[in-house]
Amino acid sequence: MSARLHAGPGRALEIAAAWLLGFLWLFPLLYAVWAAFHPSQAAIRFDVFSPLTLDNFARAWSLAPFDRYFFNTFVLVTLILVVQLVLCTLAAYAFARYEFFGKNVAFALVLLQLMIMPEILIVENYRTMSALGLVDSILAIGLPYMASAFGIFLLRQTFKTIPKELEEAARIEGCTDLMILWKVFVPLARPTYLAYGLVSISYHWNNFLWPLIITNSVTTRPLTVGLAIFGAPESGVDWSVISAGTLMAVAPLLVAFLLFQRQFVQSFMRAGIR
């Protein structure tokens, strides 16, 4: 960490600029919070001293099935994360510890998904899902993301740093391959799992395009899609209520972020450095 000791007006100006930028970056969220707690007339006139109210939240909650959307998103995010963790662990273990025919080609093919993400392949994946009869199901939202190249890559890197001696010691103790994976590799890779988990949860909590395409009913729609329908100008809902709905949708992730800021930042950092 570099700590400079500057002084003078240049330094003061720089601090002011850093603060101003921070304010600008936080402003939309602050504004949404302010609008959500004030009557809608105040938002339009930007009347700072109008009375506080919770009406907007009550109205938003009654105007759209947010409880169902929350449930759907929760199921979706959990389903994706659990399957991702299992599949990526197994595949990463294969890449880190086994010599098999076609390993390098297979690894290159896995990495291809870092470039060609499921978002790009919406047309064909939709056809596949209709052929499978899965359109409008939570499973269909998750399927294209479950084998994550990113997760495989990240875990493989971690597994490769685990010393061979540990593995051999476990083998002498009579552990099978899968037991070694479970008792040696998985516990030692815990920070990577945490990092990957946080990134995956935030990604899928926020994901929109594919869920929009593949769902068409209240029983499957995640929060983001529900929010988009709710906030559409055609719905005629006023601005303060939209703010309240928007805040409700982002609240769980935002609160988690504010509480575990350090873990979030470090996770994103760890996940990005390859």
Binding site: A91, A94, F100, L109, V110, L112, Q113, I116, N125
Partner: peptide, 24 residues
Amino acid sequence: NQVYGWLLLTPAAFLLVAFTHYPA
């Protein structure tokens, strides 16, 4: 090694082929 390697890889590979390589 051959058998184990591919067995471990298969579940992920199946989904990757189905939703990345095949659609491309």
